[in-house]
Design a protein around this nucleic acid. Structure first.
Lengths: 177, 177, 177, 177
DNA sequence: TATGAATGAGAATTCATTCAT
DNA sequence: GATGAATGAATTCTCATTCAT
């Protein structure tokens, strides 16, 4: 609901109805509407980070890792479009919520992308004239931008995995030494 | 105010106070709070589009044009950080507002980036195996992602123009045939 | 719980937890939260009245009886401070509850004090220029006022029985013919 | 409304309707429902204290002063029965409100009564074997008890000023050395 | 044209009560 | 008989919007 209609436009009673429970029941599991969003967000980022912890070490080389990250971030979307938007939505509400809670988690995610870039630079796989964190920010943004426009309605099933490959091609070639 | 605190967290009276007028005065110029955001958004996109109309034709070749677009989008931020966020903020509120009004304008902007990509592909400057609109979405996203993290507090004055150059380098090399 | 935190500030689940039972269990024994308070109140007044029925006849003379009443009302407090407040608390919530149910019981208590005063007036032990019910109201109030400030935190163990004696001294001398 | 129906049984919208304004208007003048009650309380106690500051010095001797205090506390009731109950009502809701805010003001009032008692004891007008604060508590309680039963419905116009005299007679004789 | 006090619809949250287990 | 998760009615408070001045 949050992803589809936005956090503020979604009433707690909407969430409750969608969950098939009474309004009050929500409050047995979440302290407030804010905290509900926050849980959702944490859950989502956690999932991404845990996928990364599991999958990245299996890849040989920074290039394969970066490609995997791109596939993961867009791949999650493919499966659960609405939930995927949560990360995107919450990051733009620009409230205390974001600045106090979400930002650190988000930066942690960015930094784990940046780490892969650094690794690639050290190994001579990536050009050295760009700051790793800038690359991470741009990469995340590119993927998020694709997700956003996809969510805006122009979604085609199956389009995202193809897109993942193409974006990876561009970024990896762009980063070549 | 909208950019800094979010649309919903900003009260009309906050806007009024910041503008140095009374609450009611806002309504002499805007029909509603929604419309106020919308005007801001339109104004902002219009500005971007008009810069593009003025500047792009002066550039020789798609590569120079794409580089210019990147400079423009990030450059505006440099000058007016808060206003710049408006585009970003409104696009994530995911309300009727967005889907009904903002999306078309936004797509128009994306399409004018895509047009430059198409032009480059036709001229043999860019690889032909990526859909122009996908490139546009990713490019916009990359820039927006940089703006977002910049706005999250890790801002360094002057950092954006340097970033613009580096991002352009990566994207242009990534798009090379 | 009612006495310490007030009737409205006390949740049924607080009472349940304090009683070491589940919320629902309360409703096996009391029809509603209101009725729970009411039972408590009735129980309390009943206890006071029964003490009076037992103890007063043993006393010789209205003066001794009035002194006993004072000792009883404050004495109960000494033993069970929280329960004692119930009478005080419920009488001030000023709801339908009070006016419809509690008031009659309370007036019965006052009237049994007034009866002692009348008896004393008839026997020539007390001045005759004051209405017995007024004396009863003031006497109850004086004791309740002491209980209130005692409950407000300035309580000293053992202070109440000494206070009972002193208050009795003042009232009895004040009532002397 | 608070006095008649109790604080918790009174909805903000009841207060608003009674005041002839909209619900929201209440919040232009009071931060919360709690604060509304608090203002009422402060206003009321302030009034009592200021009457005392004005009237007591005019009286010669502690006896006249104590009699005046009794007249003031009951006299205020005569004029504005409902408002008068506020003091009584709020002191019994036993919430944080009372313990944190009201108690100090209330104790200040009690202490200014106790001061008169001390003065009388020093001048030899009152017996010395009773603690002044205890007398203050009992005196306040007696008056409050009368007010309570009066408010409970057995009110007769004009009864209070007669009662004031009689209560003063009893207390003053009770306090005689 | 500007003001800002008043409005009142709307939403989050609480908590007494129920009832399947 | 006891439980406690679920319920949903009820209530406080916010804030966009209006309109008399």
């Amino acid at each position: 609901m949050f992803a589809k209609n936005g956090f503020y436009a979604t009433r707690v009673s909407d969430v409750a109805r969608a969950a098939g429970v009474a309004d009050g029941t929500i409050y047995l599991y979440f302290k407030s509407k804010d905290e509900l969003l926050l849980s959702l967000f944490e859950d989502r980022v956690e999932k991404l980070l845990s996928y990364m912890r599991d999958e990245l070490p299996k890849q040989g080389g920074a290039q394969a890792k970066l490609r995997k990250i791109i596939e993961l971030q867009l791949g999650l979307l493919e499966g659960e479009r609405d939930l995927a938007e949560v990360l995107t939505v919450i990051l733009r509400q620009s409230t205390k919520l974001l600045k106090e809670y979400a930002a650190p988690k988000f930066m942690a995610y960015l930094e784990s992308i940046a780490a892969v870039v650094s690794e690639g630079q050290a190994a001579g796989d990536f050009r050295k004239d760009v700051p790793p964190l800038l690359v991470a920010r741009a990469t995340w943004g590119a993927l998020d931008g694709i997700a956003l426009t996809w969510a805006l309605g122009r979604a085609e099933r199956g389009a995202l995995s193809r897109a993942a490959g193409q974006i990876a091609d561009i970024i990896l070639r762009g980063l070549a030494p």
